[in-house]
Simulated assay, not measured.
Amino acid sequence: MSKAYRAVVAVADRFVPSRLRPLWEHDAGPKTIFFWAPAFKWALVAASLEQYRRPLATVSATQSATLAATGLIWTRYCLVIRPVNYSLSICNFSLGVANAVQCFRAVRYQRAAAE
């Protein structure tokens, strides 16, 4: 950890209420990358959901399939690492499902357009 991050955590440590202390001290809590990775990865899920507004003619089935596979593969990984990271697992699962649906929609549209 960087000195700046340790300083911020030390200051924040004093303000964490006792009932939130277990979350704060958890192996996958806000003091670790295990907390911040899913927090920022939700932006990728949001971007995937935003893709539903685009015309299907402009959606890449390959990109959607790749993101779906990545999300679903990493969902499994999040459940076998230590500490188990349920938050990142849910985020990756959401990414996988959102892009699998988008891939299905894009492929269905491309097949209908080819007919």
Results as ranks from 00 to 15, higher is better:
Ile90His: 04
Ile73His: 01
Arg111Leu: 12
Ala106Arg: 01
Ser87Ala: 12
Ala57Gly: 14
Ala100Arg: 04
Leu88Pro: 03
Arg76Phe: 15
Ala65Pro: 05
Leu95Val: 05
Val107Ser: 01
Asn99Glu: 11
Val80Phe: 15
Val80Ala: 11
Ser94Glu: 03
Arg76Met: 15
Ala112Thr: 14
Arg76Asn: 14
Leu72Glu: 00
Phe93Asp: 00
Gln110Lys: 05
Ser94Met: 13
Leu56Tyr: 08
Thr58His: 13
Ala113Arg: 03
Thr62Asn: 11
Cys78Ile: 03
Ala57Trp: 08
Ile73Val: 14
Leu79Arg: 03
Leu88Ile: 04
Gly96Asp: 01
Ala100Asp: 07
Glu115Met: 13
Cys78His: 06
Ala112Lys: 10
Thr66Pro: 00
Val101Lys: 09
Arg105Lys: 15
Asn99Gln: 12
Tyr109Val: 02
Pro55Thr: 02
Ala113Tyr: 04
Val101Ser: 12
Arg82Val: 14
Ala114Tyr: 02
Leu67Gln: 09
Leu56Gly: 08
Gln102His: 10
Arg76Ser: 14
Ala65Val: 06
Cys78Leu: 07
Gly71Leu: 03
Ile73Glu: 01
Gln102Ile: 05
Ile90Cys: 09
Ala100Gln: 09
Gln63Asn: 12
Asn92Val: 00
Thr62Met: 08
Pro83Thr: 12
Arg76Ile: 15
Ala68Pro: 08
Tyr86Ala: 07
Ala57Thr: 06
Tyr86Gly: 12
Val107Cys: 07
Ile73Met: 10
Val101Asp: 14
Arg82Tyr: 10
Asn92Met: 10
Asn99Ser: 10
Glu115Gly: 02
Ile81Val: 15
Val107Trp: 04
Leu88Val: 04
Cys103His: 02
Leu88Met: 11
Ile81Ala: 12
Val107Arg: 00
Thr70Pro: 00
Asn92Trp: 03
Ala113His: 02
Asn85Tyr: 05
Thr70Ala: 08
Leu67Phe: 11
Ala114Lys: 01
Ala65Trp: 03
Trp74Asp: 01
Ala68Glu: 03
Ser87Asp: 12
Ala61Gly: 09
Ser64Gly: 06
Ala106Lys: 00
Leu56Gln: 13
Thr66Ala: 14
Thr75Glu: 00
Thr75Ala: 04
Val80Asp: 15
Ile90Leu: 08
Pro55Glu: 11
Cys103Phe: 04
Thr75Lys: 00
Gln102Glu: 15
Val101Trp: 14
Ile81Ser: 11
Ala100Asn: 08
Tyr77Gly: 01
Ala106His: 02
Ala98Lys: 03
Tyr109Trp: 12
Arg76Cys: 15
Arg82Asp: 05
Ala57Ile: 03
Cys103Glu: 02
Asn92Gly: 05
Leu72Ser: 06
Ile81Arg: 10
Ala69Arg: 03
Tyr77Val: 12
Gly71Gln: 00
Ala68Gly: 10
Leu67Ser: 02
Phe104Ile: 09
Asn85Gln: 13
Val107Asp: 06
Ala112Pro: 02
